[in-house]
Design a protein around this nucleic acid. Structure first.
Lengths: 208, 208
DNA sequence: TCGCTTTTTTACCATTTGGTAAACTTACGA
DNA sequence: TCGTAAGTTTACCAAATGGTAAAAAAGCGA
């Protein structure tokens, strides 16, 4: 007797399993990020993935498991630029580089940005544990790093957490509020203008 | 023969009509802002409003009309602080006051903030016309005002639109991403810290 | 108080949607 | 190439949900 791959404890995923789980998660990212959790349907995901609905439920226990898997799986990718901040580097340049990387992610991975935004907006009902176990320690650590830089006079005094909020808010805004940005600006110029503006803003803020 | 109040052309709304429409919109704000358009159900709104579902549909033609009415109705309130920017005032102080007002709104009217965030995140399917007819002219006008201030040297050079995006993003972040903020900071200190941080950041950015 | 209009309730309905049972087909190691 | 396990499809289902018809109740001007 063997259980379906939907059960967590399955070991040694086959090639087919790997391929189809990936297809499903790709499709789910597309659909969840566009419509939110409740707005997305398994039928939409099935069509987008080119896999029948019951077959999707062969690979995942249900809609919620797909969503949680996506969120937790993408969290690492999403936080990579923050992990890449180098304690040995020049403080100002490290943080400005972080801003630019986040802005590039908003441009290149808007679906991921909207997926998270949707989840947080609803009160993070399916992600709070992950936020506490993954995001909080990383933020605590980064906040300490920034505080240290400030203490030795290499950055202007700033609340590290509010600084991070401002960086996240301003960069992700271009992905999450894209529909509004497009009403107010010509699409083509957005990214370059944003890059210059954020560079100036955070440089002014952080220069000692 | 008379039509139900759900039809637009109804004239002279009765006292009962006024009261019940208000109750319904209050309840709808609560429910839509918490769950998004598709996540909200008429049953939830009905319970929250203390009015039966068919009775709600006596006052509004359907779920969508409630949502659109809410969005368009609240837009004015939401844009009031931007309209309050005084062309005759001191540029720096006017803009910093605007930032603080927006921050206060994020604290005091988080449901409105999330309602709009939800709608924009989904691509503004029910609000784009209103954005174009109401928001765009106001932003165009404000952008011209700011450009003028910059031209006469009373503000540091900044792209007016990206400046507005940054103000919106950073202030509304505290409402829209509250679930994340609460994971990372102690609730009580958030507002005061944010106010100080944003004051410093935008002052540094805008001081000539 | 009468008679008409407005408002509210009761009883439904069709569709959508997440999910399941079980038969059927394909992959693959021995 | 045969048999078993993995994967897929067909045919469903129950609950949720937006919405309606029509009767009952409440308001209200004369």
């Amino acid at each position: 007797m063997q259980d379906s791959p939907a059960a967590q404890a399955t070991r040694k995923p086959s090639r087919i399993q790997l391929r189809n789980r990936k297809r499903i998660l790709d499709a789910a990212l597309e659909v969840f990020s566009a419509h939110g959790y409740r707005g997305a349907t398994l039928d939409q995901i099935a069509e987008e993935a080119g896999i029948s609905k019951p077959n999707i439920l062969y690979y995942f226990e249900g809609k919620e498991e797909i969503h949680v898997t996506l969120l937790n799986h993408l969290m690492d990718e999403w936080l990579a630029p923050l992990r890449a901040v180098d304690p040995e580097g020049d403080p100002l340049e490290e943080l400005l580089t972080y801003v630019q990387r986040k802005l590039e992610m908003a441009r290149d991975l808007p679906r991921e940005s909207r997926l998270f935004a949707n989840e947080i907006l609803q009160g993070a009902p399916r992600m709070t544990p992950h936020l506490e176990s993954v995001l909080r320690p990383l933020v605590d650590q980064t906040a300490q790093l920034i505080s240290g830089w400030i203490a030795v006079g290499r950055l202007a005094p700033v609340d590290p957490r509010h600084l991070l909020f401002s960086i996240w808010a301003t960069t992700q805004h271009y992905a999450d509020f894209d529909a509004q940005v497009r009403v107010l600006m010509d699409e083509a110029e957005v990214h370059a203008g944003a890059a210059a503006h954020l560079e100036r803003m955070f440089r002014r803020l952080l220069t000692p």
